[in-house]
């Protein structure tokens, strides 16, 4: 069902808060990956707040929907959303992220952080794990859904395409891959470093049902998730066109730098004032 205006406004407000949390988190420890975290905020909020069947009080329920952040370096966004959902206290964001013996590792760790469904960090592995979860639902006769979020740079990894062929061949229609197509990878623009376009045609050729949306549009994201599972019986790929560093002007102007560079104190103030929170 399409979101009403109230829901859209609520999620847009939350997205500003989540962006603030991300920036404060990486600023506090002076490390982490703000750019790709800022590009996935709306995707995570729509999934966690509105689409996934989950209960923060019961994070290990066998029937819950699963989420795998295959681009694990964007953990700050996921941590901020999980804290916002009540999986753990919000204070942990600044007190624990990337700190020794902390519960919030530099990359997601399922054994240390409530709400993390799979440990990730080494790129390209998450979609295979999602396939396994989707197979698991089929074997166990459960109807949970599996969502895997990858980067567009991550699509360079051959294993992503191994998993793409498996999901299509076995018609894992309870599996959705979300591609955060922000157009940048560590070394530079994806079109320069390693061009993977046309993305939709690649996924379609592998046998997936494909949608392409504005990854910052809450309405478009909602509508895309509502079409899963596809009537075709195929797995679904949602290609989200996003802006790396979304929401902070000086970061958007230097996307390569802010892939893995945190803002200093002055920059943080400017960023927060731009976000209006």
């Amino acid at each position: 069902m399409p979101f009403d205006q109230e829901t859209v406004a609520e999620l847009q407000n939350r997205s500003r808060q989540i962006r603030r949390d991300i920036l404060e988190m990486v600023h506090a420890i002076q490390s982490g990956h703000p750019g790709g975290s800022l590009s996935i905020v709306e995707i995570l909020l729509v999934l966690y707040r509105k689409k996934m069947r989950i209960d923060p009080q019961d994070p290990h329920s066998q029937d819950r929907d699963r989420f795998v952040l295959s681009k694990g370096h964007c953990a700050p966004a996921l941590y901020a959303v999980l804290a916002d959902m009540g999986y753990f206290p919000k204070e942990a964001l600044k007190e624990s992220f990337r700190r020794i013996n902390g519960m919030l590792q530099g990359h997601p760790d399922m054994n240390k952080t409530p709400g993390i469904d799979m440990t990730t960090g080494s790129l390209g592995i998450g979609l295979s794990v999602g396939c396994g979860m989707a197979f698991g639902a089929r074997i166990l006769g459960k109807d949970f859904r599996v969502y895997v979020l990858t980067g567009d740079g991550e699509l360079n990894e051959g294993q992503v395409w191994e998993a793409a062929k498996t999901a299509a061949h076995h018609r894992l229609d309870n599996l959705t891959v979300i591609v955060d197509a922000n157009g940048y990878q560590n070394d530079g623009p994806t079109r320069v470093e390693m061009n993977m376009e046309p993305l939709a045609e690649k996924w379609r050729a592998f046998g997936w049902d494909v949608q392409e949306v504005d990854g910052h549009s809450i309405e478009q994201l909602s509508s895309a998730f509502d079409q899963v599972p596809a009537p075709s019986g195929r797995p679904t790929a949602i290609i989200c066109r996003t802006v790396k560093c979304k929401g902070v002007s000086f970061m958007e102007e230097d996307k390569v730098k802010y892939h893995g560079t945190p803002p200093d104190g002055e920059q943080l103030s400017q960023a927060l004032s731009e976000l209006g929170c």
């Binding site: 469904d117 799979m118 295979s128 396939c131 396994g132 197979f135 698991g136 074997i139 166990l140 191994e162």
Partner: peptide
């Protein structure tokens, strides 16, 4: 589960299966 000639994929799938309790 036949994964084809794709050992890396197979290991990821095995991890996902274990995560569902299999």
């Amino acid at each position: 589960i036949e994964v084809g000639i794709a050992e890396q994929d197979m290991i990821g799938i095995a991890a996902g299966l274990a995560l569902t309790g299999l």
